[in-house]
């Protein structure tokens, strides 16, 4: 392994079994760069691409670039796709799961920072946040207000400041992998999953990151649909607070 690069990977992470979980829906154009970045960030990292019912060549391209591909027979949406990855990570005994989007908006070279609190044992889930530090990310006014509102609600629930509740740039330890493998809300997995994790006494922390604009294709959420989206998410979060848990709470 000495010849391989793992620049920026915390030293005590090198002994851990680590896997990148990359959800991708028709991302044949973006996936190559994502995989290359992951490889150059950490050569000892296993990469699993979950092709969420893709109809393009996502699977072939990802396999050709050395990733294991889990091909869902039809589109489950982001939550179902990501959960497939967590199930894989749990069943194959990984200590660390790095969730990175397949559209290229997450910069793998920042993963070292995001994983650090988890590797150091200070957090069960670390979230790359665009808003802890300012700069880098532009979006519409409606969307910014919505993001603020969500952050305010989740901060109240968590009793700790959380700024970027919809970020899918996350690193999880085995305890958190187990939770999300068993139960991850499928509709809005980031926000709802976060609230669920907090209810399960998981330690959550945010790490400042910058994210990129998409290279090819469009985001799954249009600007016009943002208001409706926000309404649905808030409703889901509210219902989630009263939802019966399928995972027995243990604090091992």
């Amino acid at each position: 392994m000495s010849a391989e690069s793992h620049a920026g990977v915390p030293d005590n992470a090198l002994a851990m079994r680590r896997v990148a979980i990359v959800p991708a829906f028709n991302e044949e154009k973006n996936i190559v760069r994502v995989l290359a970045e992951l490889r150059s960030f950490d050569a000892g990292l296993d990469v699993v691409v979950i092709s969420d019912g893709s109809t393009d060549r996502t699977r072939e391209v990802a396999e050709a670039h050395g990733a294991r591909v889990l091909q869902l027979p039809f589109n489950l949406g982001i939550g179902g796709a990501v959960q497939t990855g967590f199930r894989y990570a749990w069943e194959n005994g990984y200590d660390l799961a790095l969730r990175v989007d397949g559209d290229g908006q997450h910069d793998a070279s920042q993963l070292g920072n995001v994983m650090e609190p988890v590797v150091a044992g200070r957090a069960d889930i670390a979230i790359g946040s665009r808003f802890v530090a300012t700069g880098g990310y532009r979006s519409s006014a409606v969307r910014r207000i919505g993001i603020r509102l969500l952050a305010w609600v989740v901060t109240r629930i968590a009793r700790q400041p959380l700024t970027d509740t919809t970020s899918g740039f996350q690193v999880l330890n085995r305890k958190a992998i187990r939770l999300y493998a068993a139960d991850l809300p499928h509709d809005y997995p980031e926000v709802e999953g976060l609230v669920m994790a907090i209810r399960h006494k998981m330690r959550v922390c945010e790490v400042p990151v910058t994210m990129r604009e998409r290279e090819h294709g469009r985001s799954s959420i249009g600007s016009l649909a943002s208001v409706y989206y926000m309404f649905k998410v808030l409703l889901a979060v509210f219902v989630g607070l009263f939802r019966k848990s399928v995972v027995p709470e243990d604090r091992a």
């Binding site: 979950i50 889990l70 091909q71 489950l76 179902g80 497939t84 894989y88 069943e91």
Partner: peptide, 17 residues
Amino acid sequence: NATLAQRVALIESELRE
């Protein structure tokens, strides 16, 4: 249905390997 789809993906990947 979602759980089945996930299992199919996991099993299929293992089988191909």
